[in-house]
């Protein structure tokens, strides 16, 4: 039940601009790892490369010891959520999850189970275009949980969730990590990361400026917020 996500010396360029420079970190099993950084720091790009969606110009991103693209039935190993629900707007939540399940040999009964789990049990027949932002986030989470994966990779998972939803996801992710699973989530919201994460990877301008257990990263600063601005601010020089 152990699964390590590791990113090593990732470099990504868009045009002449380098958006990721030597990004290296690990997300370990049994822990919630928070990828924290301001908007545009390179969090989503890193996760997209890890999930095989975008190609790195250099470096490696591995799930245990192989790239995501080599996984068979990847939804049963890594559950992921990127921007929004990841569903076509004219589709119902249920048929979005059903085609996903079919693609990875996941039993169809899981569709109803995850819809109930994320609180969308009554909205399965509603078109995604009519959902609220919070419902879309919940559908994205349902999709991530569908294959009962050992690792969860979530880009800004608390966006659009109400306080009750944020609390719910915190409990869910904690439970997943405590059961030996691996959780990697990105956020620009310090308070959420502070409450959810065991390990922190702080990223700014495409570089990792600090990484380690959250208490180590914030040592010497009164709060995570102080640490964050000191590490990612214009005068930040790493540490």
């Amino acid at each position: 039940m152990v699964l390590m996500l590791s990113v090593e010396r990732l470099v990504k360029r868009r045009g002449s601009r380098e958006i990721l420079t030597d990004v290296t970190f690990r997300a370990a099993p049994g822990r919630v790892t928070g990828l924290l950084g301001p908007n545009g720091a390179g969090k989503s790009s890193t996760l997209r490369i890890l999930l095989g969606l975008d190609r790195a110009d250099a470096g490696t991103a591995l799930v245990d010891d192989q790239p995501y693209r080599r996984l068979r039935q990847p939804l049963r190993t890594v559950g992921s959520m990127l921007e929004g629900s990841g569903a076509h707007r004219s589709r119902t939540a249920r048929n979005h999850l059903t085609w996903m399940a079919r693609s990875n040999g996941i039993p169809i009964r899981r569709v109803a189970e995850v819809l109930d789990q994320v609180g969308l049990g009554a909205a399965g027949g509603t078109r995604v275009g009519r959902f609220s932002l919070g419902m879309c986030q919940r559908l994205g989470l349902a999709a991530a949980l569908l294959g009962e994966p050992r690792a969860l990779v979530l880009d800004e998972p608390v966006n659009g969730l109400d306080p009750e939803g944020i609390r719910w996801i915190r409990v869910l992710l904690r439970g997943h990590a405590d059961a030996g699973g691996t959780v990697l989530l990105s956020s620009h919201l310090m308070r959420e990361v502070d409450e959810i994460a065991d390990d922190l990877v702080v990223i700014a301008h495409g570089r990792v400026v600090a990484a380690g257990p959250i208490r180590e990263v914030t040592a010497g600063y009164p709060t995570l917020e102080d640490a964050f601005f000191a590490l990612t601010g214009p005068t930040a020089g790493g540490r």
Binding site: V78, E83, G86, H88, M100, L133, G140
Partner: peptide, 14 residues
Amino acid sequence: RIGGGRQITTTLTA
């Protein structure tokens, strides 16, 4: 309004 995103990311992660 609903968080953006496109189905292609789901398709290619699946």
